[in-house]
Amino acid sequence: MHIPDGFLSPQTFLPAAALAVPAWMYAVRRVAAQLDEQTIPRLAVLTALAFVLTTVMIPLPGGTSGHLLGVGLLALAFGIWPAFLAYSLVLLLQALLFGAGGITSLPVNALIMGLLGAALAVGLHGLLRRWHAATAQVVAVWLSVLLSATAMALVLGAQPLLATDDAGRPLFFPFTAAVTVPAIVLPHLLIGLGEGLLTWMILRMAGPRRSGAMP
């Protein structure tokens, strides 16, 4: 779901970077404060886990598939800040090693998917778990994916309004929210549900064996 390089205007990615940098610094402090000398290897392994989780395919009806975002799972298992930090590192490695995503879009991708996605998953799960634990996991992850996708669609859809040439033609991503919202959000209704179900299955299977959570 992440936005590639070249689709976002400087009017978007520069303020996003100004927000993301303090968020990353705070996340580093939070994660370092929770841990001792094991911070480095654990964060490294968590980053690798976040990276590889994005390669786990979500089966969809009709024989198609999407891929796991993994932020909801990481956030429910390890907390908001480790999930945000690990996912940001994943985006950085993907951009620099594989040319996927991008450096200019990194702050927006990290804030929307890493921070907003993780915070929504944990927040919604906290609200819903008294009602029914398993359903809370599915619904929290589903809604976090859906709302992150909506935010992503709105940011992309804002580009033709933020940056145009003298003739009014878009300088960056050319579609408005009228196109991006249905194009991005509708498929994520199903992908998010698949991710919610998969997250619940993984946490249910892993739950009895995991005596102590990582960070």
Binding site: V45, V52, L53, L68, M201, I202, A206, R210, M214
Partner: peptide, 13 residues
């Protein structure tokens, strides 16, 4: 897919 996720989390820990 769920088994893959569990193995990855166990492996990570």
């Amino acid at each position: 897919a769920a088994r893959q996720g569990v193995v990855l989390m166990d492996k990570a820990q």
